[in-house]
């Protein structure tokens, strides 16, 4: 269980890093290594070069604006989890991050890395999706922005080009009056979830005006299902959350594996969604900055 030989490259800028990726067709980006190094050790991948982002200055910043929380490529899960500004702006970040692996993994793994890795069992891709987030990519030919809905192409697959690097992601902030929750079920806290869900519910004058959900481990890519049509107008105090069941079920594409059957995952996802919705509306509403939009 050791990685095969590779050339280690330590660029000092993103531009250099992108040039290295272009020069070497079998190069790979190394961020926290918490997903990549196991893959290398198991020899599931044999890149010729690793381009380590760890030495590039400025990638470890978290920025909060009225519209979004921007997270740089080398921000570790643990750093984002502890960031009070990010939590106040978008509580869903912390609500989800406590479910990502164990502290020792969160101390090194990056949030952007887990999004670039695009594991259907990862929590943060779903959070990017439900917040209508944006990926900021840098390549040898310049920068581009990719909306979350256009970023995830399949399990472990994104629309990022081989020589592009994610410089940061922006998680959108919700409109005033939005409450969020994250629920998942794993064999052991911190393990990959059998099923998980992020929900956001907007309440105005004691009536639900909008609701949406995004899933973990039960869809191929973290899409967003809009629950507004079935929940709009409901009183959050007395709502019957099972009205969302059909819409949710139609959105899921769970698979069976040694951990759980597809049917069990469906059942779990539906139950977690009902519980998450109830939990969300019991939360204090997000203190959104005036004029905040997604």
């Amino acid at each position: 269980m050791k990685p095969g030989p590779f050339r280690y490259l330590a660029p000092a800028s993103l531009q250099d890093a992108a040039a290295m990726l272009r020069a070497h067709a079998d190069a790979k980006v190394l961020a926290g290594g918490q997903s990549l190094i196991p893959v290398l050790s198991m020899r599931l991948a044999r890149p010729t070069h690793l381009v380590d982002l760890g030495g590039i200055p400025g990638l470890d910043r978290i920025e909060v604006t009225d519209a979004y929380v921007r997270v740089g490529a080398m921000v570790r899960h643990a750093q984002l989890l502890a960031d009070e500004g990010a939590y106040a702006a978008l509580p869903l970040l912390r609500q989800a991050l406590v479910n990502v692996a164990h502290p020792a993994i969160r101390n090194r793994g990056t949030t952007v890395g887990s999004i670039a890795h695009a594991d259907a069992a990862g929590e943060m891709p779903s959070v990017l999706a439900i917040t209508d987030g944006v990926v900021e990519a840098v390549g040898p030919d310049g920068r581009r922005e990719i909306a979350a809905r256009d970023f995830f192409a399949g399990p472990l697959e994104t629309t990022l080009a081989h020589d592009e690097i994610v410089e940061a992601v922006r998680f959108g902030r919700f409109p005033t009056g939005t409450r969020t929750a994250f629920r998942e079920s794993a064999r052991r806290h911190g393990d990959y979830a059998l099923a998980g869900v992020a929900v956001a519910v907007t309440v105005e004058n004691d009536r639900i005006t909008a609701a949406r959900a995004s899933f973990v481990s039960v869809t191929d890519v973290p899409g967003v299902v809009d629950l507004s049509s079935v929940l709009a107008g409901a009183d959050p105090a007395t709502a019957d959350w099972s009205v969302v069941d059909e819409t949710v079920d139609a959105h899921l594409q769970p698979e069976s594996d040694i951990h759980a059957s597809a049917q069990y995952r469906r059942m779990l996802a539906a139950e977690l969604t009902r519980r998450a919705l109830a939990e969300a509306v019991a939360q204090p509403s997000t203190a959104s900055a005036p004029g905040a939009h997604r």
Binding site: Y8, G33, I37, A104, I105, N107, R108
Partner: peptide
């Protein structure tokens, strides 16, 4: 001072 997996880091890092 922070716990990390030494099997998920290269010495060079």
């Amino acid at each position: 001072g922070r716990p990390m997996r030494s099997c998920l880091m290269f010495a060079i890092q």
